[in-house]
Design a protein around this nucleic acid. Sequence first.
DNA 1: TAGTATACGGAGGGTACCTCCGGTTTGCAA
DNA 2: TTGCAAACCGGAGGTACCCTCCGTATACTA
Lengths: 190, 190
Amino acid sequence: MSEADAVARPRRADAQRNFERILAAARSAVVERGGDVVLEDVARDAGVGIGTLYRHFPTRQALLEATFLDEARELRARAEVLAGDICAFDALVSWLRLQVDFGLHGHSMGAAVLSAKHDTGSEIQVACSASRMAGNVLLRRAQDAGEVRAGVEIDDVLRLIHALVLVNGTSPDLAQVERMFDLVISGIRA
Amino acid sequence: MSEADAVARPRRADAQRNFERILAAARSAVVERGGDVVLEDVARDAGVGIGTLYRHFPTRQALLEATFLDEARELRARAEVLAGDICAFDALVSWLRLQVDFGLHGHSMGAAVLSAKHDTGSEIQVACSASRMAGNVLLRRAQDAGEVRAGVEIDDVLRLIHALVLVNGTSPDLAQVERMFDLVISGIRA
DNA sequence: TAGTATACGGAGGGTACCTCCGGTTTGCAA
DNA sequence: TTGCAAACCGGAGGTACCCTCCGTATACTA
């Protein structure tokens, strides 16, 4: 049922090539222009017609999600590494800070995408879920260590962090972002 | 230098009437459709041409700010009332919750507008400043009572609250909003 | 190499934004 | 009251972006 299965019949070579070109163009466009990319520009940068772009990514959202997929996967991987850290609380904080860094450093759309609702089973949904679960491990560990208040849920924390990123999207005041981040961290602390 | 002074020469009667009609239409449009109102619809609802709308409100932002002006003023007034409360902490929390309620209950654009940069001296900027200062009184009082951590700044708290509202703009899960709000409150608590 | 499923691309229709300017209305002065 | 200049109105139209549709081109298969 997953999209990976749907590619059982391999794509034509040109289609595969264009898919990758579009994604690459979209990535750099999102990095430098944020979430309100002009899709026609992406197509042009990719050396592809607008129709081709829309065939591969039926909606604007689909393209942005694809752009964000790598990031979601890396966040999961990082969480799993951090789960081996000695200090449970520091590990959690590091992971959360990573979300802020990712969000601010170009991929400002990440937060918006992450906080949106996705079709169950979509690649991005799966990746986000996995990332969230990995984060949840960090959270629970910190709670077991008595360093994070009981009752705090990973979804709420993440959503708050993403909100923080979103509102500081363009031209962020890094000092303020830092203080707001600290505010959130204080909020979860036991 | 304020806009109020600029109206020294009174507007023509029809201009005044249209100004108010447009504002009224914009308000109800924003309440039911959020920040991405279609300005042409607003003009039609106001019984006015699109050109007239743009003369009174040169930019989309200007219209939204005008829409939000009352809210900003009321938030200030509420803060000043709450400053008389017995419990400083409760007063602050009530005021912050008010921001969430206002933000969620239709005026979902409020947060976005509030968190944007405005021209110094503009009506909205003045109103926001006043509101923020009134809120700051509540915060300082709670800090003096030892109920809020020292070092917490009103700007950071408000921005975080507005971020919260923004990210829960359309179809908010009220229970989650509540939990996120609690998270913020815990974050400022001494 | 020929046939076919697949993919390409851009013209074009739709929506919303904002500007511009000819025509109209209003308020004031005589 | 009447005339006039300033102020105002309204919508046509240019721009930008979105997304769809379908005739043409291309890559795979036999």
